[in-house]
Computed example of a mutant assay.
Amino acid sequence: MTSMSFADAARICLTAKYATFSGRARRAEYWWFSVVYMIAAVVVAGICLAAGSVLPGILLLLFIVPMLSVSVRRLHDTGRSGWRMLIALIPVAGPILYLVGMTVDSVPATNEYGPSPKAVGQPVG
């Protein structure tokens, strides 16, 4: 089993699996890409404030598709449908339930969404 780094997660989510909603994603891939997304959001917000325009905010649209796809793949890794992401829309409790669902460990064996990305011999990416 190979560990996933910040750079691996960014590379996978922004290139190889940019809009891949099938398959599975390890916890590390999801959380590291979440960090990438948050950094991008802070940088773009700073640019918007400095420029006095919301136009640079359009740059964040480039990150929405990979964030959604890694979220769906993460839910698949826990044996849940990607549609379960919609639970976050429930006021107050929804976002909490969503985050708890993202912290659950992977289903160790192959499930209906594919083989475990943590399996020995599976390359990162």
Rank of each mutant, 00 (worst) to 15 (best):
I87G: 13
A28R: 13
A41D: 07
L99W: 13
Y98W: 15
R27G: 07
V65T: 15
I87P: 11
M85N: 01
S5F: 06
G52P: 08
A7F: 14
P95V: 03
A109Q: 14
V72W: 00
Y37W: 11
V65A: 08
I64S: 08
T110A: 14
A88F: 09
I58W: 12
G79Q: 05
M85I: 12
R27Y: 08
G101L: 10
D8T: 02
W31I: 03
Y18E: 04
L60V: 10
T78V: 15
R24N: 02
P108Y: 04
R27I: 10
V44T: 15
D105N: 14
G46I: 08
D105W: 05
R84K: 09
T20D: 14
V107Q: 13
V43R: 07
R11T: 12
P91Q: 09
I58T: 13
S53A: 12
Y113M: 05
V92F: 15
Y30C: 02
F33Y: 14
V36K: 04
R11F: 03
P66K: 03
A7M: 12
R73S: 00
S53M: 08
P91L: 08
S3W: 07
V42E: 06
G57I: 04
G101A: 10
N111D: 07
F21S: 00
S71Q: 06
V35C: 04
L99S: 05
V100A: 12
A28Q: 13
M85Q: 11
P91M: 08
V36Y: 02
V65Q: 01
F6R: 01
I58A: 12
P108C: 07
A25G: 03
A10K: 01
P66V: 02
P95E: 03
L75K: 02
L59A: 15
S81A: 14
V44K: 01
R27K: 14
E29K: 02
L61N: 09
G114P: 13
V44G: 00
T20N: 13
R84L: 14
M102N: 03
A19K: 09
Y98C: 05
L68Q: 02
Y30V: 11
T78N: 04
F33E: 00
G79K: 08
P91T: 06
T20P: 07
A16R: 15
Y18S: 02
P91I: 07
W83F: 13
N111S: 07
A25T: 00
A25P: 06
Y18F: 15
G82T: 00
L60K: 01
I96E: 08
T20V: 14
F33G: 00
W31T: 02
I90M: 11
P66T: 04
G114D: 09
L97T: 05
V72D: 01
M67D: 04
S5P: 06
T103G: 09
P95I: 05
L75G: 04
L89G: 07
R11L: 08
W31E: 04
M85H: 03
M102C: 09
L60H: 02
R74P: 03
V36T: 13
I47E: 03
G46C: 06
S53E: 06
I87Y: 09
I47Y: 03
S3Q: 14
M4S: 11
A7L: 13
L61R: 09
R11Q: 10
A9M: 12
T78I: 15
